[in-house]
Design a protein around this nucleic acid. Structure first.
Lengths: 344, 344
DNA sequence: CTGTTAGCGCTTTCAG
DNA sequence: CTGAAAGCGCTAACAG
């Protein structure tokens, strides 16, 4: 069907190597350049990247594996990663792990068979086993957003513990004492556990007791956020504020208070994570921890391309980025009397 | 680095072709099967899909080009497409057009160079020029969600005109007469124009005059939805109901009424498009046109794979799927007196 | 600067 | 059923 370098050879009478050189930007006589260019136009020639990849052993393609392509968080990350990669003329193979470790492992093997030059992964698994094939094949990997238990790969993320800590501090500054948390559990996800620890740090520093029924740990999902919020609201002695530890849980919690007709911040104060238009959509505007998603995506690409460029091994690095807080009006100031009464 | 079929040849003493046959599921003596399998395990051999693709001229890879990977609408579509493709052991090359026609055209050329077997595209452009290279290279293309002006490619979509028509009918049944529309314009997008026509159909059938200031046509974006909604609300004689013709515009409209402190449905009734958790998130629940996104994605894959399987050309087909309406409480019943007064 | 040659890893004739 | 040989489209030495 499509023209090959051989057709150009026929048309121009030049050798394959001259044409190849022209295609790769090396020096060719102006006259020959013109002839090749003319033939390319005439034949609608396009390089066959497959053939090129076979010989160069570089496909100029990066695989990106995300835990779920349906999550707006990942969509945003993918957008920034894609932009950064396109600038460097890299293609992007996106794989959806559907929040399933088996699919995730399959995705890695798939990408390896496709001979990608490197892989960026926002992982489902907590352990690194699924990445062993990549390591064996010497294909560089950069983790994004979530680190793994062993820490053997480069990772770009935020300081989750600190971010949660600071969020709780803001709640404390509004005199909240009965503060609950909904997060993904350590088995399910890295960030959930870290954020939980940040919550504990702040509570302990404030000398507050950790109430068992105020701790909701489970899946990273809208459903879990929704159900947990409902449970918290139905407690005999409900919390006055809740920290929602990721985007999906934040969504679920908002759905829940809508369903139950609970008012925010009059009845409950909320602090969410990952501001993806959510704070603009719902009334009142939510306080949220915001991650520098663009910087994170770009940094991951930068590190990966650096590895691809120079095959020398370097010890794994963790890039930890700063978060910020988007203020809203989802937090009520607890008056001291009430605070005292509640705190008792 | 990684093992090749040659290493297996050394280990087993068998010929390349026998090994290749085994890898492709053809008949090989049980004894030889066992030897090959053992060598594969030992060497961690994985097929080099690049090399295979070079000779078979099939990469078992499909390109998917979406207008924006940041849009939840596309994320959902991608999820279903990815699932369907994975089941058929196809890989998926996702390209983000960033709502830019130039990038979109670039994406097509990129995929062609990567020798994808077929392309699914949710297009930015209204005209098909950017797909000419694919047609020239005999790579099958299926359009999804949005059709092009010429209709020369297969397309899976809904009946946009009818969907909008029915939405307006529901508003009319609630006695609304002053009905506005916010949609993407025909220059920007296929669906916008179709939905606009459906709106006109319903208004004309009801014998209502089309008020110029109630027609907002522009970009498919949150910003446009937000700004347009604000303009409508600030009119001297504002509409009592608004049809929001896509997800981003629906988001923008909700943001706008939140900002202005307008109540829905007391002050204004809303009817949106594409229910992607939005109706659950905001209060009150929005009435929405919902598209069968999963069916659409799966159908697009089915058609594409069929084309890939049999290279014979068939005239382009348009698959038009049915929509449904998710009811909410975002529409107020206009009392007849008011209706008469307003309708005047 | 240009051409010749070899070969990337695999599949595919075609004999045997 | 198995093996030898050719070749997919391109790049990478090496001579010239």
């Amino acid at each position: 069907m499509s023209a090959t370098i051989r057709d150009i050879k026929e048309k121009t009478g030049l050798s394959l190597s001259t044409i190849s050189k022209y295609l790769n930007g090396r020096n060719v006589l102006p006259e020959n350049q013109a002839r090749i260019e003319a033939a390319i136009q005439e034949l609608h020639y396009e390089v066959n990247e497959i053939a090129r990849g076979l010989v160069t052993n570089r496909t100029r393609t990066v695989g990106v594996v995300v835990y779920s392509v349906e999550s707006l968080f990942n969509g945003t990350l993918l957008h920034h990663i894609g932009n950064a990669l396109r600038e460097e003329r890299y293609g992007i193979f996106i794989c959806d792990s559907c929040n399933d470790e088996k699919i995730e492992a399959e995705n890695i093997r798939f990408l390896l068979k496709k001979k990608v030059d490197g892989i960026i992964v926002v992982p489902v698994s907590r352990k690194q086993d699924f990445l062993n094939p990549a390591r064996d094949a010497d294909v560089p990997v950069v983790l994004l957003d979530r680190s793994l238990s062993e820490g053997a790969f480069d990772c770009v993320r935020i300081d989750n513990r600190k971010a949660a800590f600071e969020a709780v501090k803001i709640l404390l500054n509004h005199n909240h004492r009965k503060i609950a948390i909904i997060c993904s559990d350590s088995e399910h996800e890295y960030t959930g556990y870290e954020r939980y620890k940040g919550y504990l740090d702040a509570m302990e520093q404030a000398g507050l007791e950790i109430v068992g029924s105020y701790q909701k740990q489970g899946c990273h999902s809208i459903e879990f956020g929704q159900a947990s919020m409902k449970e918290l609201l139905c407690l005999k002695d409900p919390p006055t504020a809740v920290l929602l530890c990721n985007y999906e849980i934040s969504l679920g919690a908002v759905i829940s208070i809508n369903e139950l007709g609970i008012r925010c911040p009059e009845d409950i104060s909320l602090f969410g994570f990952d501001d993806l238009i959510l704070s603009h959509l719902v009334k009142p505007q939510l306080y949220m921890v915001v991650q520098p998603m663009r910087d994170m995506g770009e940094k991951a690409v930068e590190i990966l391309l650096h590895h691809i460029g120079s095959k020398e091994k370097t010890p794994p690095v963790e890039i930890v980025m700063n978060t910020s807080v988007r203020t809203g009006n989802s937090i009520a100031k607890v008056t001291s009397e009430v605070s005292a009464a509640n705190g008792g």
